[in-house]
Design a protein around this nucleic acid. Sequence first.
DNA 1: TAGAATCGCCAC
DNA 2: AAACGTGGCGATTCTA
Length: 582
Amino acid sequence: MSDIDYRLIVDPDELPALAGELRAEPVIAIDTETTGLDPYRSRLRLLQLATPGKIRIIDCFRVGREHFEPLRAVLSSPKPVKIAHNARFDGRFLCCHLGIRLDGIFDTYLASLLLSAGSEVDRHGLEPVVQRYLGRPLSKEAQLSDWSGELSRAQLDYAARDAAILLPLYEVLRDRLDEMDLLVAADLEFDCIMPVASIELAGVHLDIARWREQIARNREAHERVERELHQDLSAGASQMSLFGAPEPINLDSPAQVREALTRLGIELDDTREGRLHSLAGQYPVIARLLEHRHLAKCLSSFGENILEFINPVTGRIHPDYRQIGSPTGRLTSSSPSLQQIPHTPEYRSCFSAPAGRKLIIADYSQIEMRILAEFSRDEALLTALDGGADLHRQTAARMFGLQVNQITDRQRESAKGLNYGLIYGMGAEGLAARLDVSVVEARGLIERYFEAYPRVARWLEDAGEEAVQVGRARTASGRLWIFRLDPTDPAQQATLRRLGRNAPIQGTSSDLFKRAITLLDEALGGRDAFIVNSIHDELVVEAAEAVAGDIAPIVSRTMISAAREFLPCVPVEVDLIVADHW
DNA sequence: TAGAATCGCCAC
DNA sequence: AAACGTGGCGATTCTA
């Protein structure tokens, strides 16, 4: 494939002229080749810059960081538009190795994800995206080749082609986004790319000694419970081996546990927590089993494995974020997932501020209820959310026609169950199970709830019905989820109703949260403070001790103004603390 | 024997 | 206490 017209730049003196040419372009495509995936442990080898006429490949082994100054303005200003496929990756390397922060990004990867609108079958690597939107094959063979040595003609061809293909791809994707009314959602995503890359680069600090202590305590408890359980369970084991001790059952195997329980006369379809929980009071062995499960889960998911993610260069943990991690647009983090650390002090407090620094922890209060209030414009719900008393207590007061101070804990729990459950499209059966009441009682509670919040009832009904009718839903930013379910199948129709209620709410929560990340990243620019974690409705900022007090109000103000862009009618509150530990 | 599927459970 | 939305991940078990 030598038909690609590109030039390899090894002479730093060429960069000023190149920068001049690029500045005049409306759009340029960019790509990088690196010696590995981790910007802290690998090197930037090539930077490819493509315009309709020309492709330039800069060999970053030959052109040192200090020579990139002329390109800085081109790459770090909104114009020209920079097209990249998964710009978060390239952005991290440019940030780390050249000190340049990309701006004006059009990301063909995120564009493809938005256009697929939640499809589980579409793939979004450059190769399948080029195939899908341009109808041409693209070989990615050289991607995993060794980029640290002498480069072959084939490698350079590959590098050039990867960048060049982005130009026609951009044209098509931009038109498709426009046709599908996804340009607003796309801009929201594109603006958020570098802020998310910054969160990854910042990483979190972990108090290793404290974490190890927690593991040790867990291990001890785990072994004790394991011994007790083997005794409990062997009592029912009749098939004692003729040749000695019976084979101990594997407590991590649900199948073996179920068999053992059957021998004790406890028959179950499965052994999930919800099922076991109601039996825990009756059978001590079940309570112990649940305790064992919890300890085993914590040891395997939140044990030594987390320590392996500490980066040897920074000494911190840098998770990977997927910017569109779910069809609703939520961010997800992995390797490790810092979004599912148990919400208990033993675990969370291990994520601490390093010496001389503070953590600012801020989360939106009842954000999904506020979104529901915005969508439904239910006056009673809007009032209940307007400062003052606890939402669930107020909800109960309205449901039962009582004063807020007359509400019992049980009534508050019922109201809380409804406030949370209805957002997820829960029905009477689900509520009955959750509150441990009969289905008839649950129906009555739902009826009272809908009388308290009539426009909420109306909105939920309409949203469910619309999902059945049109098979799709949008969020406030216009993000689209096409459900791809069969509305004539009763089970799938029920799912459609639930999704139709939940998707706009959860998705709008993602929208405004991403906006908050973008605005906050900008507001913190130039200060010794940066976002280190994001958990769906909560942001953690790490700041120098001396400035934390000044930064805290900026965090809450910025989060509130981001939410206001999407929720003009409903009051928004942010709970914030400044602390040494998460 | 490695990858897929399943179960189970952590988060919001 | 658990069937009601979104994920990631670990251990076991199945399968090609």
